[in-house]
């Protein structure tokens, strides 16, 4: 928690704003059942396409479902997907990156494979995997993690390479520390900041790509709420029921923007070179 010591609320407005937004979003998604009386999937088609009102804070959709309720549960889905993808990419990207960075024999083979994977845009890999495996939350999480982990592995690897020849690692080795101790105690601990920054970006990207996959119809299966799927459905009604597309759209923007700001802020905060230039 090194970075918390460096963090000062007023010197880093990006981080502060984004953390506030993220706390609100997390609150909304965690306490969704308490914040609304409606069920996100139950229909009431006789009250379809109702404009925002006292009963329906953000109106209703084409099935008469409360849009606000669906957004609460939709952001929940986004958060679940985002967190799971970040965990998986950090674990797998971390393992592959450390192995490749620390053992140069493995490096040559593994990195060429990862280069090949990175030649495809992540979203294309995710779409094809989701199309092959079928739609569903778990499949999306796996597909997105598979698409993102090469980049994570590459970042970890370069951090490991730059750290593994530093004096304190050499001295640890000279006193006879085992590889595992060196990796966990000296290398990983000191390469935490690029991993953390990349993880934040991955979180944002995962939310965006989950929305994109659901928008394309290979994501979360209806009727389960998802922000991307809500945008797809709303397209047809854009002219007659603009609240249907605005609400989930704004929610996606807020979530992704705050995470990106947080990532940028963290990078500024944790990068010693950038920090010096900023101070001048």
């Amino acid at each position: 928690m090194l970075f918390l010591k460096k963090y000062k609320k007023y010197e880093h407005p990006y981080i502060t704003t984004s953390i506030i937004i993220l706390i609100i979003i997390a609150f909304l998604s965690l306490f969704a059942p308490l914040l609304t009386d409606y069920n996100p999937v139950r229909n009431d088609a006789r009250n379809r396409l109702q404009p925002p009102s006292y009963q329906h804070f953000l109106g209703t959709d084409q099935f008469g479902r409360d849009v606000f309720t669906r957004i609460l549960y939709g952001i929940r889905t986004s958060m679940e997907v985002g967190l799971a993808v970040v965990l998986l990419t950090v674990i797998f990207g971390g393992i592959v990156g450390v192995m490749a960075g620390y053992y140069s024999q493995i490096d040559k083979i593994v990195m060429r494979i990862l280069d090949a994977l990175m030649a495809f845009p992540g979203i294309i890999i995710a779409i094809s995997l989701a199309a092959i495996w079928g739609a569903g939350k778990l499949n999306i999480i796996l597909a997105l993690s598979f698409a993102y982990f090469p980049k994570m592995a590459r970042i970890v690897r370069s951090a490991v390479i730059s750290i593994k020849d530093l004096d304190y690692v050499d001295s640890a080795r000279s006193v006879g520390a085992k590889d595992s101790r060196i990796i966990f105690k000296y290398i990983l601990k000191n390469s935490a900041s690029p991993i953390m920054v990349q993880a934040t970006f991955n979180f944002a990207l995962a939310i965006l790509d989950e929305a994109a996959l659901s928008f394309l119809g290979v994501g979360i299966m209806p009727p389960a709420p998802s922000l991307g799927a809500m945008v797809t459905d709303a397209r047809t009604y854009m002219v007659v029921a603009p609240w249907m597309i605005l609400a989930p759209g704004i929610m996606i923007i807020l979530a992704v923007l705050s995470l990106n700001l947080l990532g940028d802020g963290l990078r500024d905060l944790l990068d010693p070179h950038l920090k010096n230039t900023l101070k001048k």
């Binding site: 999937v41 139950r42 229909n43 088609a45 084409q62 099935f63 299966m221 209806p222 009727p223 047809t236």
Partner: peptide
Amino acid sequence: AMERQGAIAIQDQLEKIGVEVELQL
């Protein structure tokens, strides 16, 4: 739209009488 929304609405109504429904779109 008819097929997609119809399937979702039928799922909802069958679930109301306690029938478990799996949707394949």
